[in-house]
Amino acid sequence: MKKLLISFSALLLTACSAIPEKLQLAADTPLTNYQDALAVSYSDSVAQARWGGVIAKVDNLKDSTRIEVVHFELSPSTRPKQKDETLGRFRIYYPGLLDPMIYKKGKSITVVGNIAAPESGTIGEHPYQYPVVKANAVHLWKDIQQADVMLVQNPFWHTPSYWHHYRPYGHNPVVIRRSSSKVKKSSSAGNKAQNKTR
């Protein structure tokens, strides 16, 4: 059982750290940090970035889509790690239409592209200087579904009949019940067992 749990954990970590194909870059690709963006020489069009964050605003322009993003650091999978603080915002320019009903406010996004000259704008009435990325690729992340998990002992579980006895209460296998409304309820047998323990 222990080996099974270790294998499952390793598989989960591998899946979580996998970078989406369109965001992958050669290992030796030089990337500009968000903090250094305003110091970049924009005459050098090869300055690249792989940034991410949460969408704050989407504007469909004549030949492109402009996305305003609240910047967050990236995980090993390049998914933005949302925190209570951010270093600032930046703008993405994507060559073509991105539907604002899909790329909507609050969604996590990661972009790969070239850094362009910063733009002046405002956040509310506050003047703001936006770093800009001309996108080669963008990736919209799916929402993570979370569920509360409760571990309980099932005192009615018993060993195979040829052992001719029940296991002591403290040594019963653990039953996992998902308490989130988004996850299917436990089986009726499991529910009956729960009711008997109350």
Rank of each mutant, 00 (worst) to 15 (best):
M1G: 10
M1N: 13
K2L: 14
K2H: 10
K2W: 09
L4K: 04
A10L: 14
L12K: 03
L13D: 01
S17V: 09
A18G: 02
I19D: 03
I19A: 04
P20K: 10
P20Q: 10
L23N: 05
Q24L: 06
D28C: 05
D28F: 12
N33Y: 04
Q35H: 09
Y42V: 15
A47Y: 12
Q48Y: 13
Q48G: 08
R50F: 05
G52E: 02
G52W: 01
G53Q: 01
K57G: 07
V58N: 02
K62S: 15
V70I: 13
E73Y: 01
P76C: 07
P76R: 00
T78W: 00
K83I: 00
E85N: 10
R89A: 01
F90G: 03
R91E: 08
R91F: 09
Y93T: 09
L97G: 00
L98K: 01
L98A: 02
K104A: 06
G106I: 00
S108W: 08
V111S: 04
V111N: 03
V112T: 04
N114L: 09
S120F: 14
P127Y: 06
Q129K: 14
P131Q: 06
N136L: 10
Q146P: 00
V149H: 02
M150R: 06
M150P: 01
L151A: 12
P155K: 07
F156V: 11
T159E: 15
T159I: 08
T159A: 15
P160T: 13
Y162N: 12
W163H: 08
R167K: 06
H171D: 15
N172D: 13
V175P: 11
V175Q: 15
R178K: 07
S179E: 12
K182W: 07
K182R: 12
K182A: 13
K184I: 15
K185V: 06
S186D: 08
S186I: 14
S186R: 05
A193C: 11
Q194R: 15
Q194Y: 13
T197D: 01
